[in-house]
C-alpha cells in the first residue's frame, strides 16, 4: 500500500517540482556568492541526503548515519568549516529533494541524484562531478555460466511494469537481436523472491542496488552482478544555479578524495605524508603551498581536512559500497583511470 502511495505522491511531487522549479528558475533567486558565507556564519552545513538507501545514506543501530552521500556531506563540512561533524543532515525523499534545494532548505544535495539534461536545464540546478558512477545492470545466477550480457539470449527477466528499467532492458535485448521473456513484478521485494527462487534468470536494477540485493540470498556467492551497464546513471551532487563560488567548492570537494587516492594519501598516512613527503603533488594537495586555496575561498588545509576526517576515495568506496561493506560491490567504473576505471580528476595545479 505504501509503495502505491509513494508512487502516486511521487508523480504529484514531480509535477509540483517542475511547476515550482520553473517559476523559481525564471525569477532566479539572487544569491550569488552567498552560500559559503551563510554556511560559515551558521557554523554548520545543511546537507540534503537520504536516510533509507543502503550504501548511500542509512542509519546504524545507534541512529548514526553512514554511506557514500553522507560521507561526502562530511567532506564538504571538513573543507569549509574544518570539522566533519558540523553537518545537519536533512533527510530527503526522492519527492522532497529538489524542492528542498530550490527553497534553500539545504545548501547542497548529495542524494543519489542522477545527472540529466532536464534537471540541469529546467530546475535551476547545477550538477557537480560524479561521486559514484552507477548504471542499470543485471544480476544472474553463476550457474547460468554467463559472463557477458550479450550471452543472455532467451533469458527470463524479472521487471517492474512501466518502469524505466523495463524499457531499458527491452531496448537492450532488441538492439542485440536477442529473445527474452519478461515476468512483471509489482515490487522489488517480489522481484527479489522470484529471482532467488529461480523463477527468472535476470534481475535488473541499478548496480549499487543489485549489490545490496545480492547479499540477501542464502549464498551470495552463487550470484554475480555482470559488468555490463545497459543504462547510465551517474550520481552527482547538486547545487542551485547562480553561486559559482559554492559550485566550485563542491566540485573540488568531490575531486579531492580522488586526487588523494591518486597520490597515495590515506586518512591514516596523511599526517606522515604532510610531514615527510617530498612529492610536489602531495604537498600542493595538503596545503603546503600557501595561498593556493584562496581562489576557492577556503583555508589551505581544506583538502588535508577532508582526507584526515573522511578519507580518500578508495576508503570512502570500500567502507560504503566496496569490499569492506556488506554490499561488496566491485570498484568497476568507480576506479581511478590508472586502474582502468572512469575517475579522472583534473590535475591539482
Amino acid at each position: 500500500m505504501l509503495s502505491t502511495l509513494q508512487s502516486a505522491s511521487r508523480r504529484a511531487a514531480l509535477l509540483l517540482t517542475v511547476a515550482v522549479g520553473s517559476c523559481l528558475a525564471a525569477s532566479s533567486i539572487a544569491n550569488a556568492g552567498t552560500t559559503l558565507d551563510a554556511v560559515k556564519e551558521r557554523g554548520v552545513l545543511k546537507c540534503g541526503t537520504s536516510i533509507d538507501v543502503p550504501g548511500f545514506g542509512y542509519p546504524d543501530s545507534d541512529g548514526v548515519l553512514h554511506g557514500m552521500d553522507v560521507d561526502y556531506c562530511k567532506a564538504v563540512a571538513a573543507a569549509v568549516l574544518g570539522d566533519a561533524t558540523k553537518v545537519d543532515f536533512i533527510p530527503l525523499t526522492t519527492q522532497t529533494r529538489f524542492p528542498a534545494l530550490q527553497s534553500g532548505e539545504v545548501d547542497v544535495l548529495f542524494r543519489q541524484v542522477t545527472t540529466t539534461f532536464t534537471r540541469d536545464t529546467s530546475l535551476g540546478f547545477l550538477s557537480g562531478p560524479y561521486t559514484v558512477i552507477d548504471g542499470q545492470g543485471m544480476m544472474v545466477p553463476k550457474s547460468l555460466g554467463v559472463t557477458k550480457a550479450t550471452e543472455l539470449n532467451g533469458a527470463t527477466v524479472c521487471v517492474t511494469p512501466g518502469s524505466n528499467s523495463e524499457l531499458n532492458i527491452g531496448d537492450f535485448f532488441r538492439a542485440h537481436n536477442m529473445e527474452f521473456t519478461s515476468i512483471a513484478m509489482d515490487s522489488f521485494d517480489d522481484m527479489r523472491r522470484a529471482f532467488f527462487s529461480g523463477r527468472c534468470d535476470v534481475f535488473t536494477s541499478d548496480r549499487t542496488y543489485l549489490g545490496s540485493i545480492r547479499v540477501l540470498s542464502k549464498n551470495p556467492d552463487d550470484f554475480v552482478v555482470l559488468n555490463d551497464v545497459i543504462a547510465k546513471s551517474p550520481l552527482a551532487p547538486v547545487v542551485r544555479q547562480g553561486d559559482d563560488e559554492w559550485y566550485n567548492i563542491i566540485r573540488w570537494v568531490v575531486y579531492a578524495p580522488m586526487i588523494a587516492e591518486e597520490v597515495g594519501v590515506t586518512s591514516e598516512n596523511v599526517d606522515e605524508m604532510l610531514a615527510s613527503s617530498s612529492s610536489p603533488r602531495v604537498q600542493r594537495l595538503l596545503g603546503k603551498q600557501e595561498g593556493l586555496a584562496k581562489g576557492l575561498g577556503l583555508s589551505d588545509d581544506w583538502a588535508y581536512n577532508i582526507v584526515k576526517m573522511v578519507g580518500n576515495y578508495a576508503e570512502l568506496y570500500d567502507q560504503n559500497l566496496g569490499m569492506k561493506s556488506a554490499i561488496k560491490l566491485d570498484r568497476g567504473a568507480n576506479n581511478l583511470y590508472l586502474n582502468g576505471g572512469l575517475l579522472y580528476p583534473p590535475p591539482f595545479l
Binding site: 550504501g55 540477501l216 556488506a326
Partner: peptide, 14 residues
C-alpha cells in the same frame, strides 16, 4: 522499522 532494514548488515528483514 523500515529504515532499520536499510542497514546493509541487516538488510532484508523487513
Amino acid at each position: 522499522i523500515q529504515l532499520a532494514s536499510r542497514d546493509p548488515a541487516w538488510i532484508g528483514f523487513t
